[in-house]
Amino acid sequence: MGLLENRFDDNIVVEKLDKLLSWARSTSPWFFQFGTACCAIEMMAAAASRHDLMRIGIIPRSSPRQADVMIVAGTVTMKMALRVKKLYEQMADPKYVVAMGSCATSGGPYWQHGYHVLKGVDLVIPVDVYVPGCPPRPEALIEGLLKLQEQILEGRPLTRKTG
């Protein structure tokens, strides 16, 4: 930034447009309120009193069209897998996926004999962050979302591939 440096007052920051965009995205990743099983309760607990997700700019939305992040909270079954894919396709770009809990990561306790359980949601949609646990504590989910924010911040939407 050699040309622009020190030309303005102190309250003006000069940065790349790229970084501005990813900074704006990272601080308001609205998530798609979409719980399937036990983890949904912990997701609710994370959004409700005490843990309060909204203080880090993460707000639940009920419609996939308004959301940036899909938190797959819980077991995805074969019957649901087709729906999850459809919902993911309905979300607007840029979009990110957090696989919450061991079921969404790998099928979890239902891995061995679960004939109707999808062995990991990454079989149908791409996943950015995996949060382990059965179920993960709300703190763990918040940690995962902070990791996602870091990841978004590092992204260069204009010069490189998103996210």
């Binding site: 399937t36 099983a37 819980g74 077991t75 079954t77 019957k79 649901m80 729906r83 306790p109 239902y110 061995q112 004999h113 679960g114 004939y115 109707h116 359980v117």
Partner: peptide
């Protein structure tokens, strides 16, 4: 129903 059918009874037999 069945969007969350996780095969509980099959697991119990195993």
């Amino acid at each position: 129903l069945g969007y969350l059918h996780r095969c509980f009874e099959k697991h119990c037999e195993n």
